[in-house]
Write a protein that binds this DNA or RNA. Structure first.
Lengths: 219, 219
DNA sequence: GGGTGCTTGTGAAATCCTTCACAAGCTACT
DNA sequence: AGTAGCTTGTGAAGGATTTCACAAGCACCC
């Protein structure tokens, strides 16, 4: 049995649902830690994350062995391990493209910073927004985007532009070297191989709910 | 072979990824229709939605038979069918709980209304926000929540409260009869059986991207 | 120091989802 | 009317993920 205490191994391909759950465990553990708990069992973690204890253990087992049999997991240790697994042991510079309602709301969102992500630039085409300040970062002109990406080397871009402008915005940030994008525009985007795009789409979420309500013939 | 032209059958359990994709197809088809296209093939739809043509056809086949062999799908017909499948042939009243940055941004989001969802109420505990207007809806006092839900019978609640308040907000709307919730708070919530909760969690999305960037040793 | 009670880690089984591959069916053209 | 060229709809195969079930391991107590 290998000792993975200090280096979770990335090893093989991990399914996205697994990564999402790990993120959820981390979120809950942070709150649990703040409440002063020292240890947690896979069962408790499962209940909080809406899954099963076997799932929790399997998810973690891909990366190593973090618990103590009979006892559970050390809360602080597991937090540290999950941070390392998810790549949160460094800070990630992020640019936001679009300073409208959503872009502005995001820029002012505190959790951004407290979770390891630093907003290093916000860009907008509207001259009346350029120069305004959002949570300490000045909105810059759209045209500065490429130059700033080259200079500040953010790894992640968050797109908060209208749907019609989203594909063009994606192409620009990808052209400038960005390989990971979070898209808030209600359009599905095509990206070249090697670029990860995640979408947050309110319409889709609401439609999933509408579908669920429409088909309550479940039991 | 049955004729399902006017009534897509809800029939058996459909996987959530399928429903999400259907929503994505609908979004793309609306844009495609606006460009004046009459028909579309499963291959074109697949490219736009980031999937395969077989997947598109399989997704649709759960609900009936909507295309013409050799030709593809009628864009307007398919839009109508997808709307019906997703339960968008009626309008859905929605309440927003929390009128902070995110709640306010959502309330002013136009796409809400154009996709069949009507914001019928926004609630906040902060007296300085109560009485302000957001896109034609007046922010009401937190205490009015239960009474308004009883009176206006919204089926969906969108939670935009801070993490610490999210579980309590969920319990309240569920108590008042809501069975579908979209949670923007960065906390995972526990809901009773029969209540559908979907979460939009920025931290998780960013962490999935961080994980992807950290493990680029793929190919 | 051995027993008891609890919880992890993990192969194997089961379930779920996606991809394959091809018959069926439509249109256009000769 | 027959043929050629596309594209759908769908069983069946293949892969992936989740669940099961149990041996292994730790702490506490007598």
């Amino acid at each position: 049995m290998k000792d993975f205490t200090s280096t979770p191994s990335p090893v093989k391909h991990i399914a996205e649902p697994t990564v999402r759950r790990l993120s959820g465990y981390l979120r809950f553990l942070e709150a649990f830690d703040a409440e002063g708990h020292e240890t947690i069992s896979s069962g408790e973690l499962a209940r909080a994350g809406g899954t099963t204890s076997a799932q929790v253990r399997k998810d973690l087992s891909f990366f190593g062995s973090f618990g103590k049999r009979g006892l559970g997991y050390g809360v602080k240790d597991l937090i540290a391990s999950l941070r390392e697994i998810l790549g949160l042991d460094t800070r990630w510079p992020v640019v936001i493209v679009g300073a409208g309602k959503i872009g502005a709301a995001l820029a002012q969102y505190r959790g951004f910073g407290t979770h390891g992500f630093d907003v290093v630039g916000i860009y907008d085409t509207d001259p009346s927004r350029v120069g305004t300040h959002l949570n300490g970062v000045t909105v810059r002109a759209d045209g500065d985007l490429e130059g700033d990406i080259a200079a500040l080397t953010p790894r992640i871009a968050v797109l908060c532009v209208p749907g019609e402008a989203a594909q063009a915005a994606l192409d620009r940030v990808v052209g400038a070297g960005i390989r990971a994008v979070l898209n808030f525009a209600p359009t599905s985007l095509v990206a070249p191989e090697g670029v990860t795009v995640r979408a947050v789409n309110m319409a889709t979420e609401l439609e999933v709910l509408a579908y669920a309500l429409t088909n309550e013939s479940r039991d």
